[in-house]
């Protein structure tokens, strides 16, 4: 077990450094550097040279990379060329909004999807199973931005139950904040329920075929215990991996949803910064998402042996 953890941690460090290199290279590949973009057409060559020297842009790439990493390690992600604010503070403030929505949606989706998927697998090929699979396939086929728009029209416009535009932090006014995030959370949750139900069902069907399930029944165990103690833990392991992947993808794809609901999240920040050519912020957003994705996968890998003790040994 200890060696498993140690190996996972060292692999994570390797991936993290590769992630940093990738982000750095991607941003360097963009035509035009931050200095010329900040000064625009009006800047003189001297001003450009001064700014470049100050930001280290006149150095070769490897040196720039080391400076950048050094800065990152001390919490210095650079400053936004648009507003002059420190990038890290800017991103973290916006990240909270996205994280709340993604985590809430995922929690709801897992709580609904896993039991429903298990039930459908248990009733495989029945009408209930067919209904579950059909609804799930429909749900996962709907683009989040369209579903969000439809929910806005129905609950915001026609029924007027919820506000259409805006955002308030949870610290300021809890109930109003809640009213703003219900629809985006519901949108994401509905789609992820579609994905997870199918996954949970498929892996539960695999497990139900195995002999240890029959063995459990042959001991006289009631069905609910068979499902809870023998099917669920084994079927959940692959679903757990998928949850990790989905969390990362949600974070990456949240920009569209935040655009629909006009939420000040990190995705929105990234798109705004791309339009404003605010590359330090773009770089920060990419890096943070990459790092979080790697961390989520690490957490998943750490949890995995609980459901499947075999991996810890391999």
């Amino acid at each position: 077990m200890a060696t498993y953890l140690a190996r996972r941690l060292s692999m994570m460090l390797l991936t993290l450094s590769l992630v940093a290199v990738t982000v750095f290279v991607l941003v360097r590949l963009v035509p035009g550097d931050s200095a010329s973009l900040m000064l625009g057409e009006a800047g003189s060559l001297e001003q450009l040279a001064i700014l470049r020297a100050r930001w280290g842009l006149d150095q070769p790439w490897p040196i720039q990379f080391l400076y950048w990493i050094k800065g990152l390690l001390s919490g210095d992600f650079g400053v936004s060329t648009r507003t002059g604010e420190p990038v890290l503070a800017l991103i973290l403030a916006r990240f909270q909004v996205s994280a709340v929505i993604v985590l809430a949606a995922m929690t709801i989706a897992v709580l609904v999807a896993v039991p429903v998927g298990l039930y459908a697998a248990w009733k495989q090929n029945s009408w209930a199973d067919l209904a579950v699979v059909s609804v799930a396939t429909l749900l996962l086929s709907i683009p989040s931005f369209w579903l969000g728009l439809l929910l806005l029209v129905v609950f915001g416009l026609k029924l007027s139950w919820l506000p259409i535009l805006g955002y308030v932090g949870f610290g300021e006014d809890f109930s109003r904040a809640l009213s703003f995030v219900i629809l985006p959370v519901a949108t994401l949750a509905l789609i992820e329920i579609g994905v997870l139900v199918r996954m949970a069902r498929a892996s539960a069907i695999e497990v139900l075929r195995l002999e240890y399930v029959t063995h459990a029944r042959a001991k006289g165990m009631p069905e609910w215990r068979v499902l809870a103690f023998h099917v669920f833990p084994n079927a959940f392991a692959p679903t757990l991996t998928l949850i990790g992947l989905i969390l990362g993808n949600l974070l990456g794809g949240i920009a569209v949803l935040e655009t629909v609901f006009t939420l000040p999240g990190m995705g929105r920040l990234l798109v705004e910064s791309i339009f404003a050519r605010d590359y330090p912020v773009v770089q920060g957003c990419l890096l943070l998402t990459g790092v979080i994705f790697v961390l989520i996968n690490l957490i998943v890998d750490m949890l995995y042996p609980i459901f499947d003790p075999r991996v810890a040994r391999a």
Binding site: T15, L18, T22, G252, G253, L286, V294
Partner: peptide, 22 residues
């Protein structure tokens, strides 16, 4: 595989976004 894994650490859509900028 090292390069592939590093790229897989970014959600596909985000990588596409960054590449579009380039």
């Amino acid at each position: 595989m090292a390069v592939t894994d590093a790229l897989l650490a970014f959600p596909g859509i985000l990588l596409a976004l960054a590449l579009i900028v380039i």
